[in-house]
Computed example of a mutant assay.
Amino acid sequence: MGRKQTTQHVLEELPVPGDGQCVAKVVENRGGGNYVVQVPAEVNWTDEPTLLVSLPSKFRKLIWVKRGSFVIIQREEGKTKIAGEIVHVLFLDHIKHLKAQGIWPAEFEPNPPSAKDGESDESQSDDEENDDDLFVNPNRQYDEDDDDDDDE
């Protein structure tokens, strides 16, 4: 698969973890295409909650994986230090798809669902439509008084 086809495959496909695969959260970049990932508690691969996995060379200069990203990993037996390989890097659309399928681990939910008496399903849907996912440039200064000048 060429570079263009790999990019299309990563961006357009909606992956689902298969046998020997699970969703994991990137905790640390060790360099050389190796990452430490946090595995959900429900996955009983090892006693430790973190694993060292590698990113295949076909993705290395194509996709950037940073701390806090979510990936799908494939468990590999027989290797000593590297416990698996990153099969797919998940973007927001992929995460929404996995949540809709009911596959997303509850451990990785930002705000675990709590059963409050006064809370309704409408307030939860309003939270999903929030614009918190939008990028804010930290290098630009925003003047908070801009809105007040319009009222005068």
Rank of each mutant, 00 (worst) to 15 (best):
R140Q: 13
V43I: 15
W45C: 04
K81C: 00
I72E: 07
V37F: 09
L11S: 05
D131S: 13
W104F: 15
E77R: 12
P113S: 08
F59M: 15
I73A: 05
W45I: 09
D121L: 11
R75S: 07
V43D: 06
R75A: 07
A115F: 08
R67K: 15
D149F: 13
T6C: 06
D150K: 09
S125E: 13
I82M: 02
D143I: 01
A41W: 01
K81G: 01
G84I: 04
P40K: 08
I86N: 03
P110A: 12
R140W: 01
V37Q: 08
G118Y: 11
I72V: 14
H97G: 00
L51N: 02
P113L: 10
D93V: 02
V39M: 13
V87K: 13
F59N: 04
A83N: 12
Y142K: 12
F91S: 10
W104Y: 13
F91I: 04
D126C: 05
Q38R: 14
Q74L: 10
L14M: 15
T6K: 05
K81W: 01
A115T: 09
N29Q: 08
D131G: 07
T46Q: 10
K25M: 14
K25D: 01
L134A: 10
E144I: 14
S123A: 04
P17A: 07
V87F: 01
L55F: 03
D147W: 03
F135D: 11
K79Q: 10
V23Q: 02
V10T: 04
G102A: 10
D19H: 06
D47R: 13
S120M: 04
V136S: 12
R140S: 04
A41L: 08
P49V: 03
D146L: 13
N29R: 08
S54M: 11
V26K: 04
I82L: 03
K61C: 03
T46K: 13
F108D: 09
G31P: 01
W104V: 12
Q101M: 15
D132W: 11
N111G: 00
V65G: 06
D117V: 13
A106P: 00
D149L: 12
H9L: 14
D47M: 04
P110K: 13
N34L: 15
G33Q: 08
W45V: 07
G102Y: 11
D150T: 05
E144K: 07
R30A: 06
V26F: 04
R67I: 12
V136Q: 09
S69F: 15
Q38G: 01
Q38V: 00
E107L: 02
K81E: 10
S125M: 10
E129D: 13
I103T: 14
V136H: 07
H88S: 06
